[in-house]
């Protein structure tokens, strides 16, 4: 395996409005350091892709952004959101996760009906009005491009849906909370090509309303849907640029090798 210079980095900066910024993120599992250096600024209402080989730390980094690593790892560094450093004990993580939602690698709908998958968390957060709930279900399913397929069977078990439908239900469930930011951790990796295409087209629609950060190991996917791309390598962010520039004109050797398939 080739060795790359971890200090050879190229992090571009942009002047558009930022949804969330990170500074010097480091992650430790016990004494082992899993992530070393992540300083990135994510533009609002854009899709940013995090790419890299498996084990490069992209998922670990993503999970820092809504504090999903709290129980398993120690995270150091600053994560600025709405002028607050959210990587702090003072922050109410439950409130935070309402604004920064997440969709996981494997579709994980609850063992409940399609309708209750979406309303369960809404009710838990205090939404009681039936009409309001119904509207929210319809809207989030429409946004996730699932409404046309399931609107007649909202009371059926979500576990009976196909893989792609399940994943779009998980997206609908996340956006029903009306978050600012949507984090997606390889949302299409467990799906077949048809379902992947469904999910991708859903995401392109969603960026009108949400800031999206997506982890993927599929470079074609990153180039198809994202506006910005960050390249991760062995727990470091080596390059960050607009997707177009990163893929056509990589500044760092590791990035170039990775996107041209000469990697590893």
């Amino acid at each position: 395996m080739k060795k790359y210079d971890l200090n050879d980095t190229y992090i571009a900066s942009f002047d558009n409005e930022k949804a969330i910024t990170t500074k010097n993120i480091q992650v430790f599992y016990g004494k082992d350091q899993a992530f070393f250096n992540g300083s990135l600024a994510f533009p609002r209402y854009k899709i940013t892709a995090l790419i890299g080989a498996s084990g490069s730390g992209k998922s670990t980094f993503l999970r820092c952004l809504n504090r999903m690593n709290d129980d398993v790892a120690t995270v150091k560094g600053d994560i600025m959101y709405r002028g607050l450093n959210i990587n702090s004990k003072k922050i109410n993580v439950y409130e935070l996760r309402k604004h920064i939602g997440m969709v996981f690698q494997r579709p994980n709908p609850f063992a409940k009906s399609i309708n209750n998958n979406i309303t369960f968390s809404l009710k838990a957060h205090g939404m009681k009005n039936k009409k309001q709930l119904r509207q929210r279900v319809e809207k989030s399913l429409k946004d996730a491009a699932l409404w046309d397929e399931v609107h007649g069977e909202l009371n059926q078990s979500a576990l009976a849906l196909s893989g792609g439908q399940k994943q779009r239900l998980c997206i609908a469930r996340a956006i029903a909370m009306q978050p600012d930011i949507l984090l997606l951790d390889e949302p299409a990796s467990a799906l077949d090509p048809v379902s992947t295409a469904e999910v991708e087209s859903t995401l392109k629609e969603l960026k009108k309303k949400y800031t999206i950060i997506i982890v993927t190991h599929n470079m074609q996917q990153a180039s198809r849907i994202s506006d910005y791309t960050a390249f991760f390598y062995m727990g470091h962010v080596l390059e960050y640029n607009t997707t177009k520039n990163l893929f056509t004109n990589p500044h760092v050797k590791a990035t170039e090798d990775y996107i041209s398939g000469n990697f590893g």
């Binding site: 709405r82 002028g83 607050l84 959210i86 003072k90 922050i91 109410n92 439950y94 409130e95 935070l96 604004h99 957060h125 205090g126």
Partner: peptide, 19 residues
């Protein structure tokens, strides 16, 4: 905007539930 910021710094129903 400020409302969200304030909520982020205060314990919520979930905090109590959890404890």
């Amino acid at each position: 905007m400020d409302d969200i910021k304030r909520k982020l710094l205060k314990p919520s129903k979930e905090t109590h539930q959890e404890s």
